[in-house]
């Protein structure tokens, strides 16, 4: 009962299509949980329900014991849930630092202030966050001209700006180069463990998943079909048949595989 995030029997259907049905899981503070599964399995729907963008048909989502279903995304955020998006969502007309500053202003309830120069507000705090994700050199750049990998890192800085207890990352490394992927996830894992943030992420890159996740859940057609440590999930024959496939895995190559 003391879990940071407790999800029970979560369900969502669109018309007759059951996008997510009966998903239950728990996440402890400081742990990293991966949600994997084929395209269309319902991963993004799960994420959107967790941060309030979509209202589930049934089930419960409790954050430190408190129900958060029915709250709009901004209220979920206020309770300490940070989020990154599958397709990055930032503010392209602002500089990198201003992106973080506006988030900090919102966090400190200062966005209704009509006097004062916002570009001077929380500058040091924004710089610290940018340094954390390795973006301090690019603070002055217009966000609209960043490379995709840098946008992903900026999103992480934005997601960390409200001192989240829970971090939701929807394909955090999609579109990044292999080295960048590993670096970003290692960084995320370090921050999460140090600050006791629970992280839930989806990912198609199994290097990232198996290297960093404490536990892995597999979603298929809206249902959880397997869960456990990365090692257990990787050995699961059903998961291999549905999602991972045979003989294509990084850590498995040396062991060969019977097709």
């Amino acid at each position: 009962m003391n879990a940071l995030l407790q999800v029970e029997k979560l369900a969502k259907s669109y018309g007759g299509v059951h996008a997510v049905r009966g998903v239950s899981f728990a996440l402890e503070a400081g742990k990293i949980l991966a949600l994997i599964g084929p395209n269309g399995a319902g991963k993004s729907t799960c994420f959107n329900m967790l941060n309030g963008q979509i209202r589930p048909n049934a089930g419960s989502i409790r954050l430190e014991g408190q129900e958060i279903i029915g709250l709009p995304p901004r209220a979920v955020w206020r309770r300490g849930v940070g989020r990154t998006f599958q397709i990055t969502a930032t503010f392209p007309s602002m500089t990198v630092r201003e992106n973080v500053q506006v988030t900090l202003l919102s966090f400190h309830h200062r966005l209704w202030a009509m006097v004062g120069y916002a570009g001077a507000a929380y500058r040091d705090e924004a710089n610290r966050l940018l340094a954390l994700v390795g973006m301090e050199q690019q603070a002055e750049r217009p966000c609209g001209e960043l490379a995709y990998g840098d946008l992903k890192r900026l999103e992480l800085a934005i997601a960390l700006a409200n001192n989240p207890r829970l971090l939701l990352m929807d394909e955090p490394t999609a579109g990044m180069a292999p080295k960048e992927r590993v670096d970003l996830m290692r960084l995320t894992a370090d921050i999460a463990r140090e600050k006791g943030i629970g992280v839930l992420f989806t990912e198609h890159d199994m290097d990232v998943v198996f290297e960093h996740a404490d536990a892995v859940m597999v979603l298929n057609r809206g249902e959880l079909i397997a869960r456990g440590t990365p090692e257990e999930v990787r050995r699961d024959p059903q998961v291999r048949a549905i999602y991972l496939g045979e003989g294509l895995l990084y850590h498995d190559k040396d062991q060969g595989s019977a097709a």
Partner: peptide, 27 residues
């Protein structure tokens, strides 16, 4: 002055990305 005030920043954020602005607590 409003353009560069915190309010102006929030307004621009809402204009730039409705998705992200809602996700950082902006109404």
């Amino acid at each position: 002055m409003l353009v560069f005030s915190p309010f102006g920043f929030g307004l621009r954020a809402a204009r730039d990305s409705s998705l992200r602005s809602e996700a950082i607590g902006i109404n």
